[in-house]
Design a binder for these strands. Structure first.
Length: 440
RNA sequence: GUGGGUGUAGCUCAGUCGGCAGAGCACUUGGUUGUGGUCCAAGAAGUCGGGGGUUCAAGUCCCCUCACUCACCCCA
């Protein structure tokens, strides 16, 4: 060891990283998700990690969460990069992207985007400062057909169903129902009520009730109806009748109920209980205007949403003088995956993709090993050659620890046979690199 | 940003009343010729988060600071 001081390696809070065997599982997940999105004809898009701050902040409010960029050695007064920030979601960048490439895109534009985003928050369980979102959105000019509101949760359902994760439920609501109901009740600030009701799962009915009456200033009767609405939950469009029974009337409410019923009916073929209407979910973000989605783990509702999204009107209005509404949903890959990692439920991952490790019997026989490996690679096997002519026990131990399933022994002397060892069974026998195949 | 908890070997953690820095796991080497996991033996590994203070003496007591962590806020 040198005398030089080392920088102690420490984890950076909120920036998860995995060992190879865990990462290999994550890669399988990513492949699975991508394939699911492509099965519905969505095209892949990537956008830069950074955006101009005025793009990121076009919707305001989240400014404190945005990481900004500057060069460590920037000259005093050089603010070239100071207007750049790391994106905190994939919706804002895609809005900018669509506006920018408006003339070159075919609408309705259906894209998926699987990339990292950054948020300057206090990290804790399930909350990270760098994480991967898997987004799919449909963006169109002037109008997005309602059946996309049903297709997106269907895709999310299909993708999530293919992952080995704890039981979850996708909840669906429609902001027009909430807003229309609140307006029908004569409430001045529906958005404030939506934010309060959104906390229902966390602080309970009494907590929400307190906010509604004391902070927002609703009458007891108004607050009571708001809570009754939020209590409604069901797997099919019969919940519409329950809402109507509250006796509140407004055009917006009727429209919202029609939309919600349509979406639920469209999804009625999915396994019962996997997608439900839940009139308490609202999504805090202001830009959702119609359908909203939120999925969570059934046995850990406090963990936070693992998949969320909704419909927004005119998302790109800040960037282009065209009306571009959209509907999207995002799977919180990191949040889901990290929970399983923390619980030790990610197993079976390989620490390397190697299928065959070719041993080196002696330094002067290395050429033979290299030739053997080349033959195996040409035949489609992921193959590596051991890095030195150590004793055979060492070489096998290396393969064992890395989870490599087969160790190949080229001839120990000229004219001798090739042998291959199955690490799982310990069996070893003669083999020919030009014809060998993995036993099933 | 606000409040609580925790910082000792790569990891998980002991460390009594202030008196020589410890364990398990992991790691390296060995247990003789060409074969892994188990077992046995030996070895290496620590600015005790950092700085200051009290003391003959501080991992231990006091102050400051940083990091991590939990909750709030907010969200995937």
């Amino acid at each position: 060891m040198s005398e030089q001081r080392i920088v102690r390696p420490k984890p950076i809070s909120g920036f998860p990283e995995w060992l190879p065997e865990t990462r290999s599982v994550e890669q399988r997940w990513l492949d699975h998700i991508r394939a699911g999105f492509e099965r519905y004809g969505f095209a892949s898009v990537e956008t830069p990690s950074v955006e101009n701050l005025d793009v990121l902040l076009a919707k305001g409010e989240t400014s404190q969460e945005v990481y900004t960029l500057h060069r460590l050695q920037a000259d005093r007064g050089d603010d070239t990069d100071s207007r750049l920030g790391l994106r905190f979601d994939l919706t804002v960048p895609i809005a900018r992207y669509v506006a920018q490439h408006f003339n070159e895109l075919v609408f309705p534009f259906k894209r998926y985007q699987i990339q990292r985003v950054w948020r300057g928050e206090r990290p804790q369980e399930g909350r990270y400062r760098e994480f991967t979102q898997c987004d799919i959105d449909v963006i169109n000019v002037d109008h997005v057909p309602l059946h996309f509101d049903a297709e997106l949760p269907r895709i999310a359902h299909e993708v999530l169903s293919g992952l080995d994760i704890p039981a979850w439920t996708i909840s669906i609501n429609n902001r027009k129902v909430l807003q229309g109901c609140y307006e029908g009740l004569g409430i001045d600030d529906p958005l404030a009520v939506i934010r309060a009701v959104d906390k229902l799962h966390k602080i309970g009915e009494s907590g929400v009730s307190e906010i509604l009456t004391e902070e927002i200033g609703l009458a007891e009767e108004q607050a009571k109806v708001c809570l009754e609405l939020a209590r409604i939950r069901g797997a099919d469009s019969s919940i519409v009748d329950e809402v109507r029974r509250l006796g509140v009337h407004s055009d917006l409410l009727s429209q919202g109920l029609d939309e919600l019923a349509f979406v639920l009916d469209s999804l009625s073929d999915l396994p019962s209980g996997s997608v439900v209407a839940d009139l308490s979910i609202a999504r805090g973000l202001d830009y959702y205007t119609g359908t909203v989605y939120e999925a969570g783990f059934d046995d850990d509702p406090g963990y936070g949403s693992i998949c969320a999204g909704g419909r927004y009107e005119d998302l790109a209005g800040q960037f282009i003088r065209r009306n571009l509404p959209g509907v999207g949903i995002s799977i919180g890959l990191t949040r889901i995956f990290a929970k399983l990692v923390a619980e030790g439920r990610i197993e079976g991952g390989r620490s390397c993709p190697t299928e065959v490790m070719v041993a080196v019997p002696a330094a002067e026989r290395r050429e033979e090993s290299l030739r053997t490996a080349a033959t195996l690679r040409e035949r489609g096997f992921n193959t590596e050659v051991f890095h030195q002519a150590s004793r055979i026990g060492k070489q096998i131990q290396y393969a064992s620890r890395k989870g490599i399933p087969f160790v190949w022994f080229p001839p120990f002397e000229d004219g001798g046979p090739h042998e291959v060892k199955d690490m799982a069974t310990g069996e070893q026998g003669q083999a020919d690199p030009t014809t060998w195949s993995r036993p099933v």
